[in-house]
Design a protein around this nucleic acid. Structure first.
Lengths: 340, 340
DNA sequence: TATTAACACGAAACCGTTTGCGTAACCTCT
DNA sequence: AGAGGTTACGCAAACGGTTTCGTGTTAATA
């Protein structure tokens, strides 16, 4: 096992000082021609690479980004992550991922683990529990320490930081409008408990579209489900007991379940009922009939988030005068077989 | 913005030495009662947390694990990652993820980035290109430097390290046997080009099961597809021109495509043709008919890999005498509607 | 009263780099 | 020959901790 070689080793071997070696490797003008060549040749021969940790300590820059997401086995987060990783890597950054598992406590613990020097900044999407509790002290502490933070998708107005979101309200509005244009009379909404910012926005878009068309809201057409532990019967009851000819679902799973249970009831999709879901995932593409969905462009979102974060990290101005930006990515409706 | 507090700050403020502060915070016997209390109170008040980077440099231990996988938007890798992250976090480790994107070069670059002190060990699954090229020098270099490595799923015999795999051959054998027991006469195999260790193992199980039943192999019943860029027509031609009543697919996507295209041809599943896929992902659970699949237990795999790695990292014995283990996780057949 | 042990703390080395500054040796010019 | 200027390098501090060892003070013991 050949030990990792350090400046000290090279210095001793070549009988020069450590600083000479360091400067020689950086091609400093201070160092003589032949010394430089000697050092560089030796370093190449033994495949010298500077120790990242030492450099991090010196520079107070780790070139690591901390990403905290609620779930990794989840198409949307996974695509966002891919975007983050892609951009970050291009800029020479590595990505440390922690999964909050929708838990407030884990989110806090993970942040604290990473905030002690391990990373230069955070990219996060809030856990369900955090959104429910509306407790953002851990985020505030981090930003107060001067660690840049970018929130995406599941954000909160109470946290002052850069954000990347999609135009949830508008795109939900468009989606419902499409159903209206199809001639749907009874359009249902399948959403989550209302502590999710995104669900609220989407519900608002739904409402606006109906109102705009001169209809009035019918609570019977709105189903609120828990975020986790959804079981078939919850949706089945709703579909079996409610008369509807169009459904907007705030996520992909709900849409797939609606599709399946509508078919089970004997409804034809899209003849009897149209279905539109959020998240243009693999399920929507491969189920049958294929699902019309709203693509959130997760990868782009991740790239933008990473870009915003790295800009913050690398900007020299310490006090950014608190001019935080919120980037809005335009979601797009992908029409497939579940609508006409 | 309150700056991160260090030992030095505390020392100056309390007019003691840095070492006294350090010891006091560790509750050392060396330090007097009241000094300890004073220091600890001050530290708590200002929320002092030691700098991870400094500790890493001192200990030559980062408490970071490097994970390199071919793709993150992929159910199997994602579940493995979840297992890794779960176990690692429990042990106080963080996980740095890099995505090789099935590229040899990216795999090499990522490894080099992380190998210079950023991590204590690697958990990897080989990229398609690496398996194709059969070039493992980057892996060997890393292990020669004494950095522990655990390979999972896509492994190679040429690399001496710990490994975690599933019993691909046996479970494929079982799956085909199930089709035989159903009375299937013409069982097809849809697999990838043969540089993938896992595909080879699965193909071998397929072959063995047929031979064992006294049949002979029919090349016309075997379809080899590229790993990326599979298009419908490749499978469609195969299904339309070949007579078959059972299909084993080496991954989930192939199975879903077969299912769809068999249905398109007018075949009933499972009446006319049975389909079994690998990877018990979300697609298999929610398509219709639901797919019988082989569950690879990715999460368990990840946990085992993390456990093996951390044991290596933390074992004091530097020379492990090269007794590397290969753990085999038992895959299980999940029967659903696509088989009888 | 002199010796010694216990106590409580500080100095300094170390982890691996970077970098500002000091300086010995040589060169050049007058 | 001495002043002044290069050249080519080393010293040491710094990043933020941990840890070994040394030491001044006090109290206990002979």
């Amino acid at each position: 096992m050949k030990q990792k070689i350090t400046l000290k080793h090279i210095a001793k071997e070549l009988e020069v000082s450590i600083s000479t070696v360091s400067k020689a490797l950086k091609n400093s003008e201070e160092i003589g021609r032949d010394t430089k060549e000697k050092v560089q040749a030796f370093a190449k021969l033994y495949n010298y690479k500077p120790n990242n940790i030492a450099i991090s300590l010196k520079n107070k820059r780790t070139k690591n980004i901390g990403v905290i997401i609620p779930d990794i086995v989840h198409h949307f987060f996974t695509t966002v992550f891919r975007g983050i990783e892609k951009y970050a890597n291009k800029q020479g950054y590595n990505v440390i991922v922690c999964v909050s598992d929708e838990s407030f406590d884990k989110e806090v613990i993970n942040m604290e683990m990473l905030a002690n020097g391990s990373i230069d900044g955070f990219i996060m999407s809030l856990s369900a529990e955090t959104q429910q509790k509306q407790d953002f002290n851990h985020l505030k502490e981090v930003t107060e320490q001067g660690i840049p933070l970018v929130l995406f998708d599941r954000v909160s107005e109470e946290v002052a930081c850069d954000k990347v979101v999609i135009n949830d309200m508008e795109v939900a509005y468009q989606a419902v409008n499409k159903l209206i244009e199809e001639g749907r009379k009874k359009i249902a909404l399948v959403t989550t408990e209302n502590y999710f910012n995104v669900s609220n926005q989407r519900a608002e878009g739904y409402t606006k579209a109906l109102i705009n068309d001169g209809r009035k809201l019918d609570d019977k057409l709105i189903l609120k489900l828990p975020y986790k532990g959804v079981e078939d019967h919850m949706i089945e009851d709703f579909i079996n007991t409610t008369d509807m000819d169009g459904i907007l679902c705030v996520n992909e799973l709900f849409a797939i379940l609606c599709l399946r249970l509508a078919k089970k009831k004997g409804l034809r999709v899209p003849e009897d009922v149209s279905i539109i879901g959020f998240t243009n995932g693999i399920l929507s593409r491969y189920c049958s009939p294929t699902l019309t969905t709203i693509a959130q462009h997760g990868e782009e979102m991740g790239e933008r988030a990473a870009q915003m974060l790295i800009e913050r990290v690398e900007s020299e101005i310490d006090e950014e005068e608190e001019t935080y930006r919120t980037e809005v990515i335009e979601a797009t409706l992908i029409e497939r077989e579940s609508t006409k």
